[in-house]
Amino acid sequence: MVRSSLAPLAALAALTAIGASPASAQSACGPREQLVKLLASQYKEDPVGMGLSQPGQVLEVFASSNGSWTMIMTMPDGKACMIAAGDNWEMVTKVKGNPV
């Protein structure tokens, strides 16, 4: 699907519209709450996982029921950047005794 190549462009447009500086808009970054709203409204993506990357940096994965997904990294100051997006997301669960 073309979504993965269009997602950064959509985020850039949305972040530019909300007043992100040109430098942060070029890298698809902005306030976390605005990026989360964009993912929910435009792609119907909700959080499905998260983890601590570096001290104070949080990596989150958002996914939709139709398989689209986006990864964002949030810095301690609340700025978040889209770092990857794609399609065909599947939740994998480990069954006791059977490695994934």
Results as ranks from 00 to 15, higher is better:
S21E: 03
Y43E: 12
P76G: 00
W69Q: 00
A17L: 12
G19T: 03
V58L: 12
L9E: 05
F62H: 11
Q34M: 05
W69A: 02
P31Q: 01
F62E: 02
I18E: 04
A63F: 10
Y43A: 13
P47L: 12
Q54V: 02
G49F: 08
A10I: 02
M50R: 12
P47W: 12
I72R: 07
L39C: 05
Q42P: 11
W69K: 00
P31N: 03
L6P: 00
G19H: 02
S53P: 07
L12H: 01
V61W: 14
L12N: 06
V61Q: 13
A40Q: 08
A63L: 02
A17I: 07
Y43V: 11
M73L: 15
Q57W: 14
S64K: 01
L6N: 04
A7Y: 00
A20H: 12
A63D: 01
S64P: 10
V36A: 05
P31S: 06
A20M: 14
A40R: 11
G51I: 10
T74R: 02
S65Q: 15
L59I: 06
M73P: 14
S27Y: 09
K37Y: 14
G19Q: 00
P47T: 09
L38A: 09
Q54F: 01
L35F: 05
K44G: 07
A17C: 06
M73I: 15
L52H: 13
M73V: 15
Q34W: 08
L52R: 14
P22F: 01
A40C: 05
A7T: 08
G51A: 09
V61Y: 15
A23Q: 02
G51P: 10
M75P: 09
L35T: 02
V58Q: 11
V61S: 13
A13Y: 11
L35E: 04
L6M: 07
C29W: 15
Q26M: 03
S68Q: 06
L59E: 13
Q34G: 03
L39F: 03
A7D: 06
Q42K: 04
F62S: 05
A13H: 09
Q42N: 10
A40S: 11
G49A: 13
D46L: 09
Q34F: 10
L12I: 04
P55Q: 03
